[in-house]
């Protein structure tokens, strides 16, 4: 089965992960800009990072026949440095023109401070101005419900197209409000701290799947790129067809990401002879 990893921090992972993903059917990964584990001090550090994920990383993925795309943003955790944020935002449009850059992300909230909110608004404004997709991070653990509510309130006050916005890391307590507001919702499957593969399938069975995306977890912390395949196995084990699985784990990413013409992977229909 062909699989797309919509949210994958490749620079934190090994070539062996690419190789194993290729062997398991992954045909494309999308790398949002991420927090490095420490707060970066210089705009130039971001510019080099954006160059890494828009120029170098596609060549590393291509070694294994995997397409690599990226997103650019200042991470919410670094939004407290307002001067740095403004300077990076000033450089972002040049990266949005890169042939594999799909949009602005991951922006969003971490502790839902005013500086984070201002940064989120500025990111969304740039995205809308340049007709880009937006990937929005929602907070972890006990901050999630409040942070997601705040994200929705911020977006409600802006002139945005919900079709082009993906709100990520939803769980059972936040998914309904995101879908009801008309946005795409992403589940991120972590070994411990976020949604699990089994719970993701529960959510897929409970809600309309038209605007749902499923991501593995792939970063420098405790994470596992193959939680996505675990979700697929669980989905199939519950009796859902191969085409239904393809719709969720391949075609839904194609439908959302395909709003950007740079994404040229098309939805698949399985034909039996």
């Amino acid at each position: 089965m062909q699989i797309i990893q919509p949210h994958y921090h490749a620079i934190a992972r090994t070539a062996q992960d690419y190789e194993r993903m290729a062997m398991s059917g992954v045909v494309a990964v999308c790398e949002p800009a991420f927090w490095a584990g420490f707060d970066r001090r210089y705009p130039e550090t971001f510019i080099d990072y954006f160059a890494q994920i828009s120029e170098f990383e596609p060549t590393r993925a291509a070694e294994f026949g995997i397409r690599h795309y990226c997103w650019v943003a200042v991470n919410p955790k670094e939004a407290e440095n307002t001067e740095l944020t403004q300077e990076v935002l000033r450089h972002m449009p040049e990266f949005l023109k890169k042939p594999t850059c799909l949009g602005v992300g991951e922006t969003g909230l971490h502790k839902s401070t005013q500086n984070e909110i201002d940064s989120l608004q500025a990111h969304v404004e740039i995205a809308m101005k340049h007709d880009q997709l937006v990937l929005i991070h929602t907070p972890h653990l006990s901050d999630k419900a409040h942070g997601t509510k705040t994200v929705l309130e911020v977006l409600a006050g802006m002139d945005v197209n919900p079709d082009k916005i993906w709100i990520d890391h939803v769980e059972e307590q936040t998914i309904e409000s995101v879908l009801d507001a008309g946005y795409w919702a992403g589940m991120t499957l972590y070994p411990v701290t976020k949604c699990s593969p089994r719970r993701s399938v529960d959510i897929l069975e409970k809600y309309s799947t038209e605007r749902l995306l499923v991501n593995s977890s792939a970063d420098w912390g405790p994470s596992d790129p193959f939680t996505l395949q675990e979700s697929i196995v669980e989905f199939r084990r519950r009796g859902h067809s191969l085409q239904e699985a393809v719709e969720i784990y391949h075609n839904n990413p194609c439908r959302f990401l395909g709003q950007n013409p740079k994404w040229d992977i098309k939805p698949i229909t399985i034909r039996e002879e």
Partner: peptide, 12 residues
């Protein structure tokens, strides 16, 4: 956090 995860699995 691991215990939290395990309880969520039971709830699910």
């Amino acid at each position: 956090l691991e215990a939290r995860r395990d309880l969520l699995e039971v709830a699910a």
